[in-house]
Amino acid sequence: MEAHPKFVWFDGAVVPWEQANVHVSTATVLRGANVFEGVRAYWNADERELFIFRNDEHMARLRNSAKIMRMAVPWTKDELTRAQVEVLRANAFEGTVWFRLSLYVGEGEDHIWPPEQVPVGGFILPRLAPHLPRITEGVDTCISTWTRIADTSVPPRVKAGANYHNSRLAVMEARTNGFAGQPILLNERGKVSEGPGACFCMIRDGALITPPVTANILESITRATVLELARDALKLKVEEREIDRTELYVADEGFF
């Protein structure tokens, strides 16, 4: 399997991998000024088609992130949806794909105002993403000493590239301490927040429990789907509430 796709959608067109370049002087390179969506497209072997997971919800969250970051989106929802389809077809994937749809701040002076004058580019970077063994085998985990970023400083409601420095520090600490799985981060109140790249749920006394969106977590589309399935399909009791650290040690199970 190739380490990278043959084609990338970049600033309005599908181009070969080698031509998808961002200049070193852009704010996205210098300051991590970008917002993005990480989206899965699931392969159906019978129909030999890819099906993008909850596209409307991803497009809405992308625009919310851009709005908070004061970035004007130069493409419509339909244009970005067509771009996703074009780049997936260009790569002729035959398997489940994960792709990153990013909007980035380009070149210009610091703190440009109004938002309509902020130079914004975009790219869609896809790759094959088969399920990993940890999906069924489980992982080890730990509580990170790093605190989850807060809404009053670097809001996790925004899915921005710069936010993931917090995640990277937590993961590097976990690896240094011998853990292969994702660590769990607490928020500034000492309550469970989420993992470095995924929301957290636990089962306790037959109920599915997960931190609320006010616990400094991403407003996760996967999380919303899990809660919907738990309520409607599995008929589980679902609680969205704060979780104490010590509850993790007496939970029946937990997952990201």
Results as ranks from 00 to 15, higher is better:
residue 89 R to N: 12
residue 83 A to V: 04
residue 68 I to T: 13
residue 111 H to A: 14
residue 96 T to I: 03
residue 91 N to L: 09
residue 86 E to M: 08
residue 95 G to W: 03
residue 112 I to A: 04
residue 97 V to R: 01
residue 114 P to S: 08
residue 109 E to M: 07
residue 114 P to Q: 13
residue 78 D to E: 14
residue 112 I to R: 02
residue 92 A to S: 15
residue 99 F to S: 12
residue 121 G to H: 11
residue 74 P to Q: 14
residue 80 L to F: 09
residue 122 G to W: 00
residue 100 R to V: 09
residue 114 P to R: 11
residue 74 P to F: 01
residue 111 H to E: 11
residue 71 M to H: 03
residue 94 E to D: 14
residue 72 A to P: 00
residue 73 V to W: 01
residue 73 V to E: 07
residue 92 A to R: 13
residue 124 I to N: 06
residue 106 G to I: 06
residue 89 R to V: 02
residue 69 M to K: 14
residue 84 Q to F: 02
residue 97 V to L: 07
residue 119 P to N: 06
residue 77 K to F: 04
residue 99 F to A: 04
residue 97 V to Q: 03
residue 86 E to S: 14
residue 81 T to K: 01
residue 68 I to W: 06
residue 71 M to A: 10
residue 124 I to S: 04
residue 106 G to V: 03
residue 94 E to K: 15
residue 115 P to R: 09
residue 91 N to V: 03
residue 68 I to M: 05
residue 88 L to W: 05
residue 72 A to C: 07
residue 77 K to W: 01
residue 99 F to K: 02
residue 98 W to D: 12
residue 121 G to W: 11
residue 93 F to D: 10
residue 121 G to R: 02
residue 90 A to I: 09
residue 83 A to N: 13
residue 118 V to S: 07
residue 71 M to P: 02
residue 115 P to L: 01
residue 103 L to Q: 11
residue 101 L to M: 15
residue 106 G to C: 08
residue 116 E to F: 02
residue 112 I to P: 06
residue 102 S to T: 15
residue 101 L to C: 08
residue 121 G to D: 06
residue 96 T to F: 02
residue 93 F to Q: 06
residue 81 T to I: 12
residue 97 V to W: 02
residue 77 K to T: 12
residue 119 P to I: 05
residue 88 L to Y: 10
residue 80 L to W: 00
residue 94 E to A: 15
residue 68 I to N: 05
residue 94 E to S: 13
residue 105 V to Q: 12
residue 81 T to W: 00
residue 110 D to A: 15
residue 101 L to R: 00
residue 105 V to M: 08
residue 117 Q to Y: 07
residue 93 F to G: 10
residue 111 H to L: 11
residue 91 N to H: 08
residue 75 W to T: 01
residue 77 K to N: 12
residue 77 K to A: 11
residue 71 M to W: 04
residue 122 G to E: 01
residue 118 V to P: 03
residue 72 A to D: 13
residue 120 V to A: 02
residue 110 D to T: 07
residue 103 L to P: 04
residue 94 E to M: 08
residue 96 T to E: 06
residue 98 W to Q: 15
residue 78 D to S: 14
residue 118 V to A: 03
residue 79 E to R: 10
residue 77 K to Q: 13
residue 86 E to R: 09
residue 117 Q to E: 09
residue 91 N to I: 04
residue 105 V to L: 07
residue 114 P to C: 10
residue 80 L to D: 07
residue 80 L to V: 06
residue 102 S to L: 09
residue 80 L to K: 00
residue 96 T to H: 05
residue 99 F to V: 10
residue 90 A to W: 03
